[in-house]
């Protein structure tokens, strides 16, 4: 039984780590600019497909770099061209436009597959293979090397982002805007520029999540919506705008989901994120650690 629990913990940890990356970005954008970015799952999607499309011709390293650059740029362009003009008008417009971006990216992905001659849904080869094997066994638990890589990269990136926000000049500006945008602007901080960088960082994080996770989990055009729903549940649980809350929420939700699916019923596990969203919004809308400003 202990082996089973360990196995589920491993699976939950990996998915938790991926959602941590995605949710931290999501929370960052909300915490800084109050932007409810429904295109966040689509950022994951486009990065995953970039890797898928380029891997065969450009190799792993170049494909990853290119995918991350493109998704980061898409984040920046989305903000400048579509979110920023609507931001001052109404929040609803921003939500609607990010919704449209998500749909647009989904269609682009489908179109891209048709034009480039790729299957819409696919798996990618494992990233790491050692001595002809793709996994190792630890106390009876099978652990693919890719999982270890995902955990290391996720925590490394989240640590670096946290460090960046707390120590860098841009990070200080992000925190200042999240606390009081008007005051920060009066102090000479260019809020639009900072928000653009925030959306870019968020897109980059979603991109990293995609390039490390896609070799372990197939991609499909509609997957952006699942990613969005789950990351939404994570930030609601952890607290909108709280980065530690996102980390906590990602792992709680992932473990809950995996334990439910393995030991209770897979059908119920798909309800877990929805249940979390509904209950948390009704009882504690600010989440477990939630506060508006970035911490």
């Amino acid at each position: 039984m202990l082996t089973d629990i360990m196995q589920v913990l491993v699976l939950g940890s990996v998915e938790g780590a991926v959602y941590m990356l995605i949710a931290v970005g999501y929370s960052l954008v909300y915490g800084t600019g109050g932007i409810m970015n429904l295109a966040h799952g689509a950022f994951y999607l486009i990065a995953g497909y970039m890797l898928y499309w380029y891997l065969g011709t450009l190799g792993l390293f170049t494909s990853v770099v290119l995918a991350l650059i493109i998704v980061t740029l898409i984040g920046g362009i989305s903000y400048l061209a579509l979110i920023k003009p609507l931001e001052k008008k109404s929040q609803l417009s921003v939500v609607m436009v990010t919704f449209a971006i998500a749909f647009f990216i989904e269609q682009i992905v489908k179109l891209g597959c048709s034009i480039l001659g790729f299957e819409k849904e696919s798996t990618l080869p494992n990233l790491i293979e050692i001595k002809g094997t793709v996994s190792f066994e630890l106390f009876g638990t099978i652990i693919p090397y890719d999982y270890v890589f995902i955990l290391i990269i996720s925590f490394l990136i989240v640590s670096l982002i946290t460090l960046f926000i707390s120590k860098s000049k841009l990070g200080t500006s992000i925190r200042a805007i999240s606390q009081d945008r008007e005051a920060a602007t009066l102090m000479g901080i260019n809020a639009d520029r900072v928000l653009m960088f925030t959306v870019m960082i968020s897109a980059f994080l979603a991109g990293v999540a995609a390039v490390i996770y896609v070799p372990s989990y197939p991609i499909a055009p509609w997957q952006g919506w699942v990613i969005l729903t789950n990351s939404f549940a994570v930030v609601i649980l952890g607290g909108m705008g709280s980065l530690p809350g996102s980390v906590l929420g990602a792992f709680i939700l992932s473990y809950a989901s995996h334990f439910t699916r393995v030991f209770i019923d897979p059908a119920i596990s798909t309800l877990v994120p929805m249940f979390v969203i509904v209950v948390m919004l009704a009882l504690r809308p600010q989440g477990i650690l939630g506060k508006k400003e970035i911490d």
Binding site: Y217, V226, R261, F263, S269
Partner: peptide, 11 residues
């Protein structure tokens, strides 16, 4: 829902 099959396999 891709996660439904994944959940079934894990169980």
């Amino acid at each position: 829902d891709l996660s439904r099959g994944v959940a079934a396999a894990e169980r």
